[in-house]
Amino acid sequence: MEDWLYIGLFVFISIALPAVAIFLAGLLSPKKPNPIKNTSYECGIETVGPSWVQFKAQYYVYALVFLVFDVETIFLYPWAVAYNQLTLFGVLEAVLFILILLSGLLYAWKKGALEWM
């Protein structure tokens, strides 16, 4: 519990430190907004069309493949912690687990889901 208290405080501080810095800089810096200055920079010229554009499905596929592998790997962490006390059977179980997912990667590969289009 004490560890988590420390972690909680540390995360809080690591958000608060930049917040304080940004606030202090806000006090020091000049504030002279004007309509031209406040337009979006975009790419250096005027914005054309809506800026929240529709994205292609490729991003979603990457996130999905990532999610599957992420969940898989997290399953393996308790196994890795117990690794030194396992029998060979236990190790091979995890190997089978990985092999099943490797076939998933292979499928994604063959289907072209991993190409950037």
Binding site: A25, G26, S29, P30, K32, N38, T39, S40, S51
Partner: peptide, 12 residues
């Protein structure tokens, strides 16, 4: 220098 730079918050 960067501490004394203005924050430009674009419209929108």
């Amino acid at each position: 220098k960067i501490f004394t730079k203005e924050y430009i918050t674009p419209n929108g």
